[in-house]
Design a protein around this nucleic acid. Sequence first.
DNA 1: AATTAATGTTTACATGCGTAATCGATAACC
DNA 2: GGTTATCGATTACGCATGTAAACATTAATT
Lengths: 123, 123
Amino acid sequence: MAVSEAEAIIMDVLWRSSPRSAEDILAEVGPQQGWQEGTVKSLLNRLLKKKAVKAERDGRRYLYAPRLTREQYVSQESKGLLDRLFGGRVAPLVAHFSEQRKLSKKDIAELKKLLQELDDEQS
Amino acid sequence: MAVSEAEAIIMDVLWRSSPRSAEDILAEVGPQQGWQEGTVKSLLNRLLKKKAVKAERDGRRYLYAPRLTREQYVSQESKGLLDRLFGGRVAPLVAHFSEQRKLSKKDIAELKKLLQELDDEQS
DNA sequence: AATTAATGTTTACATGCGTAATCGATAACC
DNA sequence: GGTTATCGATTACGCATGTAAACATTAATT
């Protein structure tokens, strides 16, 4: 089953640094999201059930760590969107952002560099 | 409220051509999705409630048409993903697909052309 | 006019999600 | 050793979603 949006916020914390205790996660995400203890614990349990995180006992508590990598998650999500909205092709997606003026100078520079690199490794 | 995934499939039919009757929509999407009448009708009603489509009476029945444009929908969805996963920047997204070898030759060619055009209109 | 067919409207029902309160077990403290 | 604090596990609850059946209305047919 898929990792939901609220769950992904917990994953983000774990991707930044793990393993971490529930308390620790709450401290980082609670104030920011307005979540309290029970919420974080439920989300952690659902993530465990989905096998997206693992838990290792540490005395009285658990330390949680990702089992699903950020790369895997990002891939699933982006591929889903790409397939659903752009026929699975990247160029139309970029064209879309271009039309929406969502390409910053920096983006453009980086894209050029990226394409250049692809050329280089090609030859 | 957001248009759900099943609802988006109905929208797709309407974006391809509209206005259309429920029967018509069912004919196109039913066999393919394994949906039956009631399902399509429910989805249409939810879309009406969300004001994503409008309905115009045509004799005994209604003809449905999009109110939300495909552009609007695509924008919302892609911006959501971009913000959540790539800090709102396009280049990292493309880099991600590049790393996943998801850039076809055609993609690369089109991206080059796109960047070229951006340069041109710039100068 | 009564019955049937065609459509839209309302209701249903299981599952997932966001958000949490409550329960239960175990460790710490008096 | 009994009480309290700390954690995780279980349960809850409203709302959205996917999927559809049941109901209502109105037009067509006999």
